[in-house]
């Protein structure tokens, strides 16, 4: 398998701020790769390093095994869908989409045909003559996508492309993006702070925090076997059990992750007190106190919901408790 993008000990520092700090990363060709993390975690900077808008202060970003250090953005085989879409307001949709081809010197008729094709690919035919200002947020997002894809990039970079859309549209676009990527076979690098988005779309996910990658793996791995307390908490708001408690339960001294949905009511289980309960529709979330340690628990619909302040007995499957390496506090 060909490596599309590789980070070799890449750092990007701004003065004393380490936006990206010694990151190693390999993204395979044809992969849907998500960079997940809170704002300021360095994921967007990594994307900008691939696009060439930023240059690493140390290390090397390789694109298809070629060092990219001195390659300006306009000579990289990648295209970007920007967070604010960055559509050119003075050009209509057709000329926006055809911009890259116009720059490449493709004849007018040919590039207009390609633009129409790209627009129908993103389900937006018939909008070619409109100005971006006359489009809705979702439509602009599609135009930005078409404008990048029309150039047939080897790697498509997406910077929180769904962030500005409402929930319904976002879910619809998630499905469409995923099927588009499968259909085109292009490498997608997708930056998001939304863990459900990353988990549902990506083949592999890198979780960022404070300029470093905490964990890289397939969504299942990231969710079920978080490496660090940060990953456990950020992805799916897992319960992070302190080492002392884990030692009492298992005899091993380490932090552990315990997913809220892995907890169940069990007559012979550990006693815990209900502090808080919140009805979320399909499930009810309980906040429990077990020996001074707070635990979140998701109770599926149909189960009897205990009253507040009641004492319940809970248990979990042994392999639901996942021990983590001690990396950060």
């Amino acid at each position: 398998m060909t490596t599309a993008i590789a980070f070799r000990q890449v750092s990007r520092h701004y003065g004393t701020v380490r936006a990206v700090d010694a990151v190693d990363l390999e993204i395979a060709e044809g992969e849907f790769f998500a960079m997940l993390g809170p704002s300021g975690s360095g994921k967007t900077t990594c994307l900008r390093l691939i696009a060439g808008f930023e240059r690493p202060t140390a290390g090397e970003v390789e694109i298809f095994d070629k060092p990219s250090g001195a390659v300006p953005p306009y000579r990289r085989p990648v295209n970007t869908v920007f967070q604010d879409y960055a559509l050119f307001p003075h050009l209509n949709v057709r000329d926006n989409v055809a911009y890259g081809l116009m720059i490449a010197g493709v004849a007018r008729a040919e590039r207009h045909r390609a633009a129409e094709e790209a627009l129908s690919m993103v389900a937006l035919p018939g909008y070619a003559a409109r100005k971006p200002a006359a489009l809705s947020g979702g439509q602009r997002q599609r135009v930005a996508l078409a404008r990048a894809l029309v150039n047939k990039p080897k790697v498509l970079l997406l910077d929180e492309p769904l962030g500005a859309l409402d929930l319904k549209l976002r879910e619809q676009m998630q499905v469409e993006l995923k099927s588009l990527q499968r259909q085109l076979g292009i490498t997608f690098v997708f930056v998001t702070h939304d863990q459900s988005e990353a988990l549902s779309m990506a083949d592999r996910v890198a979780v960022f925090n404070e300029g470093q990658i905490q964990q890289i793996g397939c969504p299942q791995d990231i969710y079920d076997r978080p490496n660090t307390p940060f990953v456990a908490d950020f992805v799916g708001s897992s319960n992070v059990l302190p080492p002392e408690m884990v030692e009492r339960l298992t005899g091993k001294r380490a932090s552990a992750s315990l997913r809220p949905e892995a907890l169940r009511l069990q007559a012979d289980g550990y006693a815990a007190q209900v502090i808080e309960k919140a009805f979320l529709g399909a499930v009810t979330r309980l906040t429990l106190d077990i020996d001074g340690q707070k635990l979140a628990m998701l109770l599926p619909k149909g189960e009897e919901v205990p009253e507040k302040a009641a004492t319940v007995h809970i248990g979990w499957d042994e392999d639901a408790l996942h021990l983590m390496e001690q990396r950060d506090a």
């Binding site: 696009a51 060439g52 808008f53 300006p72 953005p73 306009y74 000579r75 990648v78 295209n79 970007t80 920007f82 960055a86 559509l87 050119f88 911009y99 890259g100 720059i103 490449a104 404008r147 990048a148 150039n151």
Partner: peptide, 9 residues
């Protein structure tokens, strides 16, 4: 940046 990204010098 978008213009450069799309290949424009």
């Amino acid at each position: 940046e978008a213009s450069g990204d799309l290949g424009a010098r």
